[in-house]
Write a protein that binds this DNA or RNA. Structure first.
Lengths: 334, 334
DNA sequence: CGACTCGATGGTATCGATACCATCGCTTGC
DNA sequence: GCAAGCGATGGTATCGATACCATCGAGTCG
């Protein structure tokens, strides 16, 4: 490194180019408002000095942070990661950057993170959950910026929602199993304290399977250190012990389903002959080259992209409720 | 929406609490420097007005953005996501936030993103790649902040590196296969333009397998729309056609390995009897409850955490080169 | 008892870019 | 030929919090 170099300022660039500061600002922000000759001089000075516009100062004077905050439940799940990519790509077209944090599925953590994000004066706030503490809800309401809840369609969104009906999703996968002849379907659920989406899908299952006495839910307690496939494998063993008639298992994620599928193979159960397995999310490994898992596909990228569009649109403060739907992908496990 | 509400400022809070602005600032930033009684008054005023500190102004006046920039190759890969979590958690203990973007493994994209991040005047910059364009390298050098390259240990790091030797990793997995009796080992590589880590692991493989005439590399071209398991499945078919003697396949990720494993099962190949399969990354699905894949485990979370520690440490400007190592996890596929 | 220390608090300048308004020079139209 | 119009450019105030220094009062020590 060497000396602790101070940042070059716009004034330095202006002096170097022989123009006023404001012209440098215009050259960088709105090049069309500067004559080609001046633009060239400024660009040369910028390049020589290695100047980079200071957004911290720009944000203050223009009262526009050019930042959008995002609170995702977790990044270690490719579905949300796709949403983040969609958001980032979409927002970058409008010159906005994403300030990201993860709540680890905990509303209290979310509530603690909201002020730290709001402190950056974001122009919008995106959340991948609709489960907020009262304090969080209050902060979101007072923030005075568009708030977008993704991956759900809550009855009472804070502001705008872009997602799909988890209840309908749970019903759809159940219907598919019923239509393919299954009668003793078990919905495998990991009991997390905060899993509103999983609970809604389970509700959809319960509603759809109401007439099937052999269909039930099975709960696996959350355990520290356990991975999603562990829950699947353990769940399957318990299910077959408790409900040996079971002919189909619905999981709340493909990763859990991978545990069910691999355990079934180890037990010598024929899939889908003896047991059908359905997942959720359509991850890479679920494709035909991999586990060939029947699953519900949600286009997380599209959700993020759509959210970005809404933020950049002129009437972003208008509340909306957008259903992005889902797709049933039938593969070899049903 | 309603009226375009202006943000409450520190002055409003000060007036409400009957103290000076600066006291409000201290109450929020360094509560220990304010008397308990005053602190209480300020806190009450803050709560009543719903005030949130404006970091955009704070950053300018204190010349500290409290932001760390991060450029990851992709978020849609749980290994980097873990690193991001480790970073976020570690940095939050020092009051720093992460400004994140994804380069999609493209150095040109990286070079384009660097100025946008530098514009926020971050206090450090983290990269999950050591493959930079000359222009990018130049910007990083001039930035005057700590630059951390993760997941690699380049010969000439820009500044600080926290990672492991990909070459040694490739050698280690090869050695394991040789020690377990394999002689015709194929290293399956997806030919991405920018995959320095994969190339290094392949180099480690080539070095270690030099004395084995039956050992080779097999390249699969990158194809738009293809998923990682597709590469694995396709690769295995091509390998068995071209090199029928093959008794082991090394993949550059567990997801690719999942394609190889599932394809092998479909072809009726006994694993690991007829064919051994090794992956890379130790994803959730690779565990004993899932695919039970032999793999190299890298603790991405620890890498992120360590990087955060280095950034927060007093001598953060001292270049370092930290080897976090890796672990061979032997499971059912070798 | 006075000088001194220390904790608590406030006033003012400042960070760097941008908004707003003014200015300047050149073209255009009558 | 002159006023109006317009593109290009600059000066100055401003955004909101914090650094720095000053102040003030209460204790402490010799």
């Amino acid at each position: 490194m060497g000396e602790t170099r101070k940042w070059v300022t716009m004034g330095d660039v202006a002096a170097r180019a022989g123009v006023g500061k404001i012209t440098v600002s215009r050259a960088l922000r709105t090049p069309s408002k500067v004559s080609p000759a001046t633009l060239e001089k400024v660009r040369a000075a910028v390049a020589e000095l290695g100047y980079v516009l200071d957004e911290t100062a720009g944000a203050l004077s223009s009262q526009r942070s050019r930042i959008v905050g995002a609170l995702v439940s977790t990044l270690e799940d490719s579905v949300f990661a796709s949403t983040v990519r969609g958001l980032t790509e979409g927002l970058s077209e409008g010159g906005l950057q994403l300030l990201l944090s993860a709540t680890q599925y905990d509303p209290e953590t979310e509530a603690a993170l909201i002020p730290t994000i709001l402190g950056r004066r974001p122009e919008a706030l995106v959340l991948t959950s609709a489960d907020h503490t009262p304090a969080a809800r209050d902060m979101l309401n007072r923030a005075g910026i568009p708030v977008l809840e993704l991956w759900e369609l809550p009855d009472h969104p804070v502001h705008t929602a872009v997602g799909f009906s988890n209840r309908a999703a749970g019903a759809a996968i159940t219907r598919h199993l019923v239509e393919t002849g299954r009668r003793n379907i078990v919905f495998l659920k990991v009991d997390r304290t905060h899993d509103a989406r999983g609970a809604l899908r389970m509700a959809g299952f319960l509603n759809e399977s109401a007439g099937l006495p052999g269909s039930q839910t099975h709960h696996v307690p959350e355990a520290p250190g356990a991975t999603a496939p562990d829950y699947g494998a353990q769940g399957l063993r318990e299910i077959l012990e408790r409900l040996p008639e079971t002919d189909a298992v619905i999981c709340t994620s493909d990763i859990i389903a991978s545990g069910v599928l691999c355990e079934a193979q180890r037990m010598g159960l024929e899939v889908p002959g003896r047991l059908a397995i359905a997942g959720f999310g359509d991850f890479d490994i679920s494709g035909d080259s991999g586990l060939a898992l029947t699953t519900l596909k949600i286009d997380g990228y599209a959700i993020g992209r759509r959210a970005a569009e809404l933020i950049l649109a002129p009437g972003a403060m208008e509340p909306l409720r957008i259903d992005m739907g889902f797709t049933l992908v039938r593969r070899a496990t049903t």
